[in-house]
Design a protein around this nucleic acid. Structure first.
Length: 707
DNA sequence: CAAGTGA
């Protein structure tokens, strides 16, 4: 395979420039300020002078406003050391239910300043593709969160005449949701200027695609091959997506044809847009329908006091972690720009009151983590009665042991329309056969789509496995970090939360600018850590499984499995944080005696992705094969899966040890691989250090799938 | 046993 370099050192300068900008950000210095989740921080300042309904009266300080004020002061933040030190004193409260702790010396900074001057209008140039824009700049009626949703209410309407007339929405019943609202320069800048990925799909090559199910629609080659409407096409241009990725080519027409879908495609291949584009497009063309009526009907007065109405989203997207939900929400905002659709996100660990108030401003597409959504449903803030589109992102995770009960609670044991009446879509890079079978409970006449073999890794990721004893891991890690390029991000995975804290402390003492993310940290700290990592201020992040799935962080050049995970799906997702959208990446895994459970699966993955395989690993896999009683199956199935025994289920097959059968699973023939072992040069730990340097400056963008 | 998901 030949890698076509598209961008070289040129892009590097740009990245450094961005870093400088971010490091000059303002610090939120206020004491005792409430934690405001990022998606609620960046409001238009003009919101604050609204005399209306929204409760900003209590000395409301939104992060954006605050950030601007402090940003002008010279808060020349030094090295990441500084704020890390500050956080040290904070640690004691980490484990003690420290949700919603106000954070002193908290840096909201980089977030608020990403506009780079909020009244500046960037050169949008060729990307404004919304036809006739004679109305641009008038700023009459903005659609999005800030000004736009405020416009839905008539001033002072609450105490008024009674009846429904106070809702401006009334008068919009007949309005056409497919027509774009006027543009908003500030918002457009905010949503799209950071849009980093210029994807090169020009020479997308063959990749095996399986689309099974009755009457599967054909795929598209261009976004123009299917009618997604004016709003979507305009936003596609603004995001600079030129051509659909492979999974988008297939999934978009399937979803537009109103079919249920189980879609499997490699990490970083554009799955999020593959469902957001067609779902939103469909909502635009169909309009809100009954959901709007129901929402309005829920508005009441009680005891002279206005009772907040319940929201009935038209679409629900569920994700397994909070940060992923937030990321999906951010994407949804882009594709909802200039539409009447208002995306919302709810997740745990953040102030629920803020989220409720945000919901009450309108919610047509809801992104959520399961726990908080159940909470919202039980509080009567959300009704799924009119949810026409259900998306499970990271679907295999959402249906595994930990999440399945909550998913059933939301989807089957409440008011959501049954399968068939709603459209259900599932996406993941991995989808073990057992979970595919379970997933059928939620699907009707679905199409199974596999772009590449299910569970395979991108060949754009160079995978290394090194034998490292536990006691040597730290020093080996330092060697790898020292070899990394100055500008590149490194993500280090460990198995436990305590381990994450310990390793981060170690790296800190060794003088590295690092941060960490795991489930025992406060939500505020988690999001700040992610932001500092993304921005490059802390180019090293130690993480648990919370960061394994879905997070799209540009410029992650190296993923290190300091501890290998116990199942191969987790491995695939972890290393998938690098090598995204046509970029190259490196993944290094520390292997020792403790990791025998993943040996065989790891070997298969390496072989399939045409990676070098250390001979010792091959030998171990062979040995393990003969002594293992449970080979080839994820650990979580070995302990039973409730009362179910999937081996008895029709269609489940009986070849759990057979990798090929397991992965293409219930849907058809094996995509065989392997068989081409042998001939691999040995790959000892000694030569590793020397080889490593070769990867330093060599991460450039290449064609999709590495061709 | 670990990780994640409501307080």
């Amino acid at each position: 395979m030949s890698h076509v370099a598209v961008e070289g050192s040129h892009g590097l300068d740009q990245q450094l420039a961005v870093l400088d900008l971010n490091s000059a950000d303002g610090q939120g210095v206020g004491t005792g300020r409430r934690y405001i989740p990022p998606h609620l921080r960046n409001k238009d300042v003009s919101q604050n002078d609204s005399p209306g309904w929204d409760c900003h009266s209590n000395g409301f300080v939104n992060g954006y406003h605050d950030g601007r004020i402090n940003g002008t002061a010279n808060f020349a933040r030094g090295l990441p050391r500084n704020d890390r030190g500050g956080r040290g004193s904070f640690r004691g409260s980490r484990n003690g239910g420290s949700f919603n702790q106000p954070m002193h010396n908290a840096g909201y900074g980089t977030y608020e300043n990403k506009d780079g001057g909020w009244n500046a209008v960037v050169n949008r140039g060729a990307y404004t593709s919304f036809g006739g824009r004679s109305d641009r700049g008038k700023s009459v009626f903005f659609n999005d969160r800030g000004a736009g949703s405020r416009g839905r209410y008539e001033r002072g309407g609450f105490g008024g005449t009674g009846g429904n007339s106070r809702w401006v929405e009334e008068s919009r019943d007949e309005e056409d949701w497919s027509k774009p609202m006027p543009p908003n320069d500030r918002l457009e800048n905010e949503l799209f200027s950071a849009s980093n990925t210029g994807i090169n799909f020009e020479k997308y090559d063959d990749i095996p695609v399986e689309a099974t199910g009755s009457n599967a629609p054909g795929h598209i080659e261009s976004f123009h091959d299917v009618d997604m409407g004016e709003i979507i096409m305009g936003n596609i241009n603004l995001t600079r997506y030129t051509r659909p990725t492979p999974v988008q080519k297939y999934a978009i027409p399937i979803i537009k044809a109103k079919r249920d879908l189980m879609a499997c495609a490699q990490t970083g291949s554009g799955k999020t847009a593959a469902f957001l584009l067609p779902v939103l497009s469909q909502i635009y063309s169909d309009g809100p329908g009954e959901a709007l009526q129901a929402t309005k009907a829920s508005a009441q007065q009680e005891n002279g006091k206005y009772v907040r109405r319940k929201q009935f989203p038209i679409s629900l997207v569920l994700a397994p972690t909070r940060e992923l939900a937030l990321q999906i929400y951010d994407e949804a905002r882009k594709f909802a720009y200039r539409s009447r659709v208002r995306p919302c996100v709810v997740y745990g660990g953040a102030d629920i009151g803020q989220q409720i108030r945000d919901l009450e401003r309108g919610c047509h597409l809801l992104v959520a983590t399961p726990g908080r959504l159940v909470d919202m449903m039980e509080r009567g803030k959300i009704g799924m009665d009119y949810c026409k589109y259900l998306v499970l992102d990271e679907a295999d995770r959402m249906l595994d042991m930990g999440f399945e009960p909550q998913i059933r609670r939301i989807v089957e044991q409440d008011t959501m329309p049954p399968k068939g009446a709603r459209q259900t879509m599932m996406f993941s890079a991995t989808f073990p056969k057992e979970i595919q079978i379970l997933a059928r409970d939620f699907l009707e006449e679905y199409i199974f789509l596999a772009v590449g073999r299910v569970g395979s890794t991108s060949e754009n990721i160079t995978q290394k496995v090194v034998w490292v004893e536990e006691n040597d891991k730290r020093s080996f890690l330092l060697d790898l970090l020292n070899a990394a390029g100055k500008d590149s991000l490194t993500l280090v995975f460990v198995e436990t939360k305590k381990g994450a804290d310990a390793l981060e402390d170690f790296l800190y003492r060794e003088g590295y600018a690092c941060t960490s993310i795991h489930g025992d940290r406060s939500q505020r700290d988690r999001e700040e850590a992610l932001q500092q990592f993304r921005s490059g201020r802390c180019p090293i992040m130690v993480a648990t499984a919370v960061a394994a799935r879905g997070l799209d962080i540009s410029n992650v050049k190296h993923v290190i499995n300091f501890d290998l995970p116990s199942d191969i799906e987790e491995y695939v997702h972890r290393i998938g944080r690098t090598g995204r959208v046509g970029n190259l990446g490196l993944a290094t895994s520390f292997y020792n005696d403790k990791n025998s459970n993943i040996t065989k699966d790891l070997l298969d993955i390496l072989v399939e992705a045409k990676q070098e395989v250390p001979s010792w690993l091959e030998n171990l896999a062979y040995e393990h094969q003969h002594k293992s009683t449970n080979r080839g199956r994820p650990k979580r199935f070995s302990g039973g899966f409730g009362a179910r025994d999937y081996r008895q289920m029709p269609g489940a097959g009986n070849t759990f040890g057979n990798r090929g059968a397991r992965n293409t699973g219930v849907h058809g023939g094996n995509r065989g691989f392997g068989g081409n072992k042998g001939g691999f040069g040995s790959f000892g730990g000694d030569s590793y250090g020397g080889n490593y340097g070769n990867y330093g400056g060599n991460f450039t963008q290449v064609d999709w799938w590495g061709n």
